[in-house]
Amino acid sequence: MLLPEHDFIKPRSLAEGLAVLRDAPPGVRLLGGGTDVVFNMRCRLMTPDTVLSLRDIPELQGVDVLPDGSLRLGAATRLTDLVADPVLRERYPALVKAFRAVASRHVRNMATLGGNLCLDTRCWFTNQTKEWRDAKGPCLKTGKDVCHAIQGSPICVALNNADSPPALIAVDATVTLASHRGERTLPLRDFYREDGIRHTVLEPDEVLTEVTIPPTRDRLVFLKETARQGMDFSYGTIAIRADGNGARATRLHIVLGSLTTAPRDLSTAGERLVALGLGDDGIDAACATIRDALGPLTNLYSPAAYKRELARTLLRKAIVELREMPA
């Protein structure tokens, strides 16, 4: 399983990189830390003509505090550097927890923020070697009109299994996408699509350059449920951001990750909790909305019934943690 042959390019500036993308899409694959790209290239899920490494682009590096108090995170900053960042650690311990929840330290020493946000969706009928896929037969993502995960599904239902998006969505982070045509900034929430094949709105000639987190004094909680701590994809994650303190909140933003094709907002659950408070009644009422909010789930990596139960568990635990946070 060697890598497929490609042209490897390592631009020294963003402009240089965008120029490559202008001339050569869609056969270009951006490379952050490569921890997912190399894996997928070995499996021939990705066979790019050109690999464009973002590692030496200075514009994509680092954490800065902007004049309005927002934080700007460069997309090619490694997760390890985000975990170690003193400003993030002080202001957003739950965000740091989410970054640290990704894979293993070995992977985080290479992986970038942009790579985690753009991480391709995963499915165990697809994320296999080419021989394996050939034996099973292709699917929506690999060129045929069949979904192996949900019989008859018209769209690919592979999971968004990345750990940092829910937490960043909860704090209303925005992402900036740059191309030779210019730049656009949009809420991270709107970056994701409910389609396992084109799972983000990123255009083939665009680069995610930075993430901006607006200042906030709200509480933030992040939880990840996984088979193994310290080295595993999630069965499910949750991020909740709330104002107020104790059992009172007037605004709640709840985002579930890893259960569906895009991170899922639980807005109805949030409303119930605002109305009833974060006590056990509020939690029960919020949990009762989960089945509808999630809709049909796949059996990918864990059974659908478990995923549903896990969503309730995560919600309950996260709210309890939130209401017990010191003011």
Partner: peptide, 25 residues
């Protein structure tokens, strides 16, 4: 990337997986 037997240290002394990174990088 899942077993770690290929681990080496980078210039900063951090553990990285040599199987998961293109040589040209």
């Amino acid at each position: 990337g899942s077993c770690g037997v290929c681990t080496v240290n980078n210039a900063r002394g951090e553990a990285v997986l040599s199987c998961l990174t293109p040589a040209l990088e």
